[in-house]
């Protein structure tokens, strides 16, 4: 793709040198062992490596453990309501398309109470990286079964084991029109996670990244405890995310074409049954963003012209007596 005038305008001439501290407000207050620490660290490293201005980053979150994310990231942030991060992100992206938007949610937040917003925002394809930190449990409210909990999960609302098969967020997302980016990574794979976030960050459109993580307190055994035995398989493709197996002992690498929606759907559909796919599952950078679509139709009018135009409009309602 050739350079757009927006790219040109936003190009930086100044040299800055941001370090990790420039993206850190305070020590994160998540439990030790929590995957949130890893996700935050990977994001901060990615921002540092790309020398992103902290004031141009906006991190919107919902409610839940993961949604404390913006408080620990030195950037602008909006810690919204349970399930409602995405509408606020849509508002920010419509208001200020030039800001670098990041939306962080948990599995209950995004897939359950925020399900409707999730589906529709995927369809809007707003320009935002959307991270879902999925630990298969409601943690902040103290251990209730979540939409992604495996069947049989013992929780405070399902003490005899949960009753339903989990929701497959990857398959659902792939069923939405205008989907442009889906990737999956895991919090115990720092290298892969950072590479995934980087790829997502550079995507123009909604980059949906599901980050698998365990909850050391309420769901320590999610995803085999995030251990060397985690059954993952890496998706490899030339424009995909570089394979970085990290600690994994038993993770095959398979060729996958992320531009092929049918291949992506096959990978997603099997994710729970065999091995969790890691890497870029679907990618279509050609899908236009919602703000690009909308603003291509919106006139540029300065204050004077606007006042004049409104006055002209009022004439339509005028009554000469």
């Amino acid at each position: 793709m050739s350079l757009t005038i927006d790219d040109f305008v936003q190009k930086e001439e100044s040299t800055c040198s941001y370090g990790m501290d420039d993206y850190t407000t305070e020590a994160a207050r998540w439990c030790k062992g929590c995957g949130g620490h890893g996700a935050l660290g990977a994001l901060q490293r990615m921002l540092r490596d790309n020398q992103v201005h902290p004031e141009e980053v906006v991190c919107v979150s919902g409610i839940g453990c993961s949604s404390r994310f913006p408080h620990y990231l030195r950037a602008y942030g909006f810690h919204t309501l349970h399930g409602r991060a995405l509408p606020v992100s849509v508002g920010v992206s419509l208001a200020r398309p030039e800001l670098k938007l990041l939306t962080v949610m948990g599995d209950g937040d995004c897939f359950s109470i925020g399900g409707n917003h999730w589906l529709h925002t995927l369809r809007y394809n707003i320009n935002s990286m959307v991270m879902v930190l999925d630990n298969e449990i409601y943690a902040l409210t103290k251990k209730q079964v979540s939409p992604t909990s495996r069947i049989g999960t013992v929780s405070n609302t399902s003490p005899r084991g949960s009753y339903l098969e989990p929701l497959n967020p990857l398959s659902v997302a792939l069923g939405i029109s205008n989907i442009s980016f889906i990737a999956q990574t895991a919090s115990w794979l720092p290298g892969h996670m950072q590479a995934t976030l980087e790829k997502a960050w550079k995507h123009k459109g909604l980059a949906f990244v599901r980050i698998l993580q365990r909850c050391p307190v309420f769901m320590p055994n999610a995803f085999q405890g995030g251990s060397v035995d985690f059954p993952g398989k890496f998706l490899e493709s030339p424009e995909g995310i570089p394979v970085d197996k990290g600690i994994l002992r038993d993770a095959p690498v398979v060729a996958h074409d992320p531009r092929n929606i049918n291949a992506a759907q096959a990978v997603a559909a099997n994710s729970h049954m065999e091995k969790e796919p890691l890497g870029l599952i679907y990618y279509n950078p050609e899908v236009p963003t919602y703000s690009d679509i909308r603003y291509s139709k919106v006139a540029t009018v300065d204050r004077k012209a606007k006042a004049k135009l409104l006055d002209d409009y009022l004439t339509r309602y005028s009554v000469e007596s």
Partner: peptide
């Protein structure tokens, strides 16, 4: 749109106000 504005028909009433809040905040 002639005035540089736009109407966003959200997916529900909750999102409608959420979008407005996000926009104002930004």
């Amino acid at each position: 749109e002639d005035f540089g504005g736009l109407v966003h028909q959200a997916e529900d009433e909750i999102a409608a106000v959420g979008v407005a809040i996000g926009s104002n905040w930004a």
